[in-house]
Amino acid sequence: MSVIDHDAALARAGANVTGFWSQLAFMARRYPLGAVGAVIVAIFVLTAVFADVIAPLDPTATNSKFSLAHPGSAFWLGADFMGRDMYSRIVHGARISLAVGAGAMGLGAVIGITVGLASGYLGGWFDLVLQRLLDIMQALPLLVMAIVMAASLGPSLRNTIIAIAIPLVPTVARVVRSSTLSLREQPFVEAARAVGMGELRIAVRHVLPNTLAPLIVLATAQIGSAILVEASLSFLGLGIPEPHPSWGRMLSESAAEYVRTAPWLVIFPGIAISLTVFGTNLLGDALRDILDPRQRS
């Protein structure tokens, strides 16, 4: 399959697709599932940013009168056994998931890009050592590695981000390294070298931007798995501590006690996690189709 030429497709579609919005509309029609994903992700990010405004109540305020209140007009999604409003907690939970998803991916990407660039660009024994280190890190499944890391660091938001970021490093580093390797010998890099550009500058100015497309695809997919890993860690009691409203933590508490008596405590945080990850996955698929046509599904 050849590269999809969107501009050509746009041109064929007529003159009315020049504006930003109409281009967006075109994309949405071309990738309907991706559009759904983008909407879900947008809602998720907006919820996280404006959690204070959206949530009607303080997510940590306890009230004995409303212990295990059913979903209804007072508490849309019910209340947990301490009488805390589930709707407010889920809204604030978006913030934690976003922080962990973006934070872990960001940190993992920064380290991974540095390692990958250095490894691919410098080559030699340096590359060899880094590759073996990455081998070691990849000898354990992501969740197992994250569990060991989280247990070593102790439960907190910062430590959870680190514990998830580190196992993400090898994938990013490998992607960056392989595109760096192929780019290193490209004519435009040679040209830059010929005009006397420094190696570091070449790496950052010319090689890095060209690895961006696969990186964006990877990052979108990894944000979803970072959110899932956080939920699993918190579920196992190793992630974000109380009283912070982490979705995974909410499930772990309610699952242990109230699967029967208050099923809404189990259902709603689970929906929140699933929907968010589902959205990032849909968006990731569409982005891959757009940016990286070789891997088109």
Binding site: G224, S232, V259
Partner: peptide, 21 residues
């Protein structure tokens, strides 16, 4: 495709809880 993508999105512990329920 939606079903398969949801398979990658549902936390397996949550799915397990739903199955138990």
């Amino acid at each position: 495709r939606v079903v398969s993508l949801s398979g990658l999105s549902l936390p397996s512990f949550w799915l397990g809880l739903l199955v138990l329920m």
